[in-house]
Design a protein around this nucleic acid. Structure first.
Length: 404
RNA sequence: GUGGGAUUAGCUCAGCUGGUUAGAGCACUGGUUUGUGGUGCCGGGGGUCACGGGUUCGAAUCCCGCAUCCCACCCCA
């Protein structure tokens, strides 16, 4: 038997399928209310795109990409995340030159060659949004509120963690400062942190090693080293969130795993889905468009991990809906098929192809959760009528077929 | 990539220290005296016990390997 590849799942059970489509519908509707429109970009991109945007020092690019050479000799890979492709499309279509604001949302599969566990698949789905051209910190706040809206609409509880990563003015001096500090404790920190010191020193801050964490308690904090503008924007962000009843925790060690983030960084986490607890994450990436050869354009976005959210969604009750048709005599089957097709123009409708007794039709109608069970037997066939029972109200009547 | 656990019917699981045709509940399906469901009763189908080796007279059960899932590390959505 041929099986799906490791870490690549089918979404096909009734419940999963229902949850998945419900999520997409809900998130799409909310994104559209916020003025975002759908963008679809290729699953396959040039490898260089991710190396330059996500960053070579990140694990995602360093060891998790599905990378290969295509038949034309191009170095390509399956997208490990969504932002890079959207930014590429933004620049390629010269929207950076067009000016103004551009707001997109997307959803689709992402690929990372990781060791699978609960909430971590090799092919997984994200829903994300990207906003270009807005420098104002209000946009950052609105992004966060949008995530909160989506999670709220789905009945999902969360904790919001917030940090500021600084900008090109205040980040580099801080980084130097931090490297100096790391060197002062270098002999005691873990191997990973020693490596991080060289590749991406900021990442030592969210090291999970307890010993490292205790050493870093005295590390300089970026949040205390922000320049005036970053400082005031971060303060403003908190004010806006407070005013809109969004509760958050400041996590000075929150470092996004992708190198392109600056200033606002946030992560929504859930305590109910195991160790892979990040359900949404995002932030500002004002420098990325420029890095990818576009005109400097401020931008901010987020992504949500759909599989991680699925089991947390509080689904609405399923209610009886639509029609079920059945025939009790062979001669009536053709008639109910025609009636079903007619009903399907406006309503959900299904039917039984075999002539069966009434009890069986009622059972089947109940099983498919139909609201109305409509049956034609010999009496009805003769009189050109149809027997209809409302399975919810338990009311039944026989009506002329035209009245259905 | 590292360590640990699991793997028996579509699903959730039993199966004692190896012993004949591997079980249950749910699900599916058929019937249930003249046309009434979700909630009665009776029946039926479905498993090379993940896969590959080995030990044994005999393996779902013991041993080795392998795959996948789960948990932790790691990483991140």
């Amino acid at each position: 038997m041929i099986k799906s590849l490791r870490g690549m799942n089918d979404i096909l059970s009734y419940e999963e399928s229902r949850r998945f489509t419900y999520f997409i519908q809900t998130a799409t509707e909310i994104a559209q209310r916020y003025g975002f429109h759908y963008i679809e970009t290729p699953l396959l991109e040039e490898t260089a795109l991710f190396k330059r945007s996500v960053g070579e020092s990140s694990d995602i690019v360093g060891k998790e990409m599905y990378q290969f050479e295509d038949k034309g000799g191009n170095d390509v890979c399956l997208r490990p995340e969504g932002t890079a492709g959207v930014v590429r499309a933004f620049i390629q279509n010269k929207l950076d030159r067009a000016g103004g604001t551009h707001r997109f949302f997307y959803h689709g599969p992402m690929f990372r060659y990781e060791r699978p566990q609960k909430g971590r698949l090799r092919e997984f789905h994200q829903f994300g949004v990207e906003s270009f051209g807005v420098e104002s910190v209000y946009e950052d706040a609105v992004m966060i509120m949008m995530v909160a809206d989506i999670l709220g609409a789905l009945g999902i509880g969360y904790r919001l963690q917030l940090n500021s990563l600084g900008c090109k003015e205040c980040m580099p001096p801080y980084r130097d400062n931090l490297v100096n500090f790391i060197e002062s404790v270098e002999s005691e920190i873990c191997e990973d942190c020693q490596r991080r010191k060289l590749t991406n020193p900021i990442r030592v801050l969210d090291c999970k090693n307890e010993k490292c964490q205790s050493l870093y308690e005295n590390a300089p904090k970026l949040i205390n080293s922000l320049c005036e503008r970053c400082e005031s924007d971060f303060a403003k962000l908190k004010t806006i969130l407070d005013a809109n009843n969004i509760t958050y925790e400041i996590d000075t060690n929150l470092v996004r795993g992708l190198d392109y983030y600056s200033k606002t960084a946030f992560e929504f986490v859930s305590d109910n889905i195991g160790s892979q607890s990040a359900i949404a994450g995002g932030g500002r990436y004002d420098r990325l468009v420029e890095f990818l050869d576009g005109r400097p354009t401020p931008a901010v976005g987020f992504a949500m991990g759909i599989e991680r959210l699925l089991e947390l969604i509080e689904m609405p009750e399923v209610s009886r809906e639509g029609y079920f048709f059945g025939a009790m005599d062979e001669e009536a089957v053709d008639r109910i098929i025609a009636l079903t097709q007619q009903k399907r123009k406006t309503d959900k409708a299904s039917c039984e192809y075999r002539a069966r007794n009434l009890k069986n039709h009622l059972k089947s109608a109940d099983k498919v959760n139909a609201r109305y069970c409509c049956v034609i037997g010999s009496n009805e066939l003769e009189n050109n009528t149809i027997w209809v029972k409302d399975l919810e109200e338990k009311i039944e009547k026989t009506i002329r077929i035209e009245e259905l």
